[in-house]
Design a protein around this nucleic acid. Structure first.
Lengths: 258, 258
DNA sequence: ACCTGAACACCGTTCAAGT
DNA sequence: ACCTGAACACCGTTCAAGT
């Protein structure tokens, strides 16, 4: 969410550093940093302004001079965390660039796993992406041969692919009652009936705690690495195949051409 | 989240219907139904127990006799909404079944668009899926030729694919300030610099309000239909291509075989 | 068993007041 | 300009008490 012009702060102006407690001067930056640290520890649900104020050694109301609401604290923290998604993205074949983009996004998100459920949320996600990354994405789709409306579709596909797997992988049980969560999952597994769900039953051992809905360990502590690599593989192959199909369809519709 | 055994309710027991106001007797079912209706209208953020109680014409504390927390109200409502994702799924080639599964999931979610951001959230998603659907999914992956660890990976891929696009498509601006959201998006678009983001600039007109991050209209009111169909196409092609690649790799590793 | 009624603890936000 | 200090409104949850 684009920043409303913050209260003007003269650049080099010396600030009174009243407290000996090492509390750096308050600023939008420092506040969002602290907010991010809190959210990283406790998750967005438990995040609250009063605790944030305490960490910053100010009264809660002081925060409102820099950030107008709790929601914007959260989206600002997410934007901070996602800085650098577009840094030093590789060059090379578009397939390699696409794979790198997906991996990079997951890496960044893995540094702040508790933000994962927020990325899909309405609060956030415009804050999360900068024009540089979007340009990189569009460029690689051009290189793949997409154009016009097909390119827009492909953009949406790749964008959803970028966020999709990692978001689900890292969205995990509420920290409070991990034990209850685990037994709930085991109950779900135990309820599988070999007569009524034969295919599922055949693979239950292999899937247990390794597959969505059937796992209780967090994707943070126990990443689904091979699943993610399969994801990258499927997306790249799929986009490649679709690009080829669209090209031949276009060629067929204008039979005599260079 | 599996239901803890609810307070035992004798089946046919007549209940005192004290109020003439047409308020049906309280039950876990009726409460979750009312909760779902409220969430559908206002979104999960604004959903609160006091209003739910008012809608049910009881005191807030009455609700706690059936459902132990706000979180479980929400996850229960989601489970209710997602009933029937696995109903009458088609037969046929696995590719067609895969496509149908993805489309079906989106259809169901589109009936309750405000639930979209919750699906990726830790609160929920075990509540959302039943063994029948998982079995259907595993079966089609077997038919596609996956086995062992590859099948588990493919399961995670398809699962993420099922949720990924629709979740992002329907997660939209907070209803409160749609106007502010739109102008924020336009500002994001205006900030695109043809010199620094040339590829993006080339397609900006086509992408405006049609592409993730650059759209302000909700995926509810303005669906990304062609984008979603491209998604289905990419996923099916990708899975198909990967299955083939794995098969030939397996064949190569055991050179003499049937 | 099922619900009332009141109370508690907590939290986001506002606002007048200070410096 | 920037922060204090207190207050307001709201909300999830608990609990004793009713029937």
């Amino acid at each position: 969410m684009p920043t409303k012009p913050p209260p003007p702060r003269r650049a080099g102006r010396p600030r009174k550093t009243g407290d000996a407690a090492g509390g750096a001067a308050l600023s939008r930056e420092s506040i969002l940093q602290a907010a991010l640290a809190l959210i990283d520890r406790q998750g967005p649900q438990a995040f609250n302004i009063r605790e944030l104020a305490q960490a910053l050694k100010v009264f809660p109301s002081a925060i409102y001079w820099y950030v107008p609401s709790r929601n914007e604290l959260i989206s600002g923290a997410v934007a901070l965390a996602m800085n650098g998604v577009a840094d030093d993205l590789v060059t090379g074949r578009w397939q390699a660039r696409l794979a790198a983009l997906l991996r990079r996004y997951r890496e960044v998100l893995r540094r702040h796993p508790r933000l994962a459920p927020l990325v899909a949320s309405e609060l956030i996600y415009n804050a999360t992406f900068d024009a540089t990354m979007l340009d990189h994405l569009v460029q690689l789709l051009e290189d793949a041969g997409f154009a016009g409306a097909d390119l827009v579709d492909a953009y949406n596909v790749v964008f959803a692919a970028m966020c999709g797997f990692a978001t689900m992988e890292l969205s995990t049980a509420p920290a409070e009652d991990a034990q209850a969560w685990e037994s709930a999952c085991r109950a779900q597994i135990a309820r599988v009936d070999a007569a009524r769900q034969p295919a599922l039953a055949r693979h239950l051992d292999a899937m247990q705690n390794r597959a969505f809905v059937l796992r209780w360990s967090s994707g943070d502590g126990q990443p689904l690495d091979s699943g993610f690599e399969a994801w990258v593989d499927v997306i790249v192959r799929g986009v490649e195949s679709r690009a080829r199909a669209l090209r031949t369809a276009a060629k067929a519709s204008r039979p005599a051409s260079s």
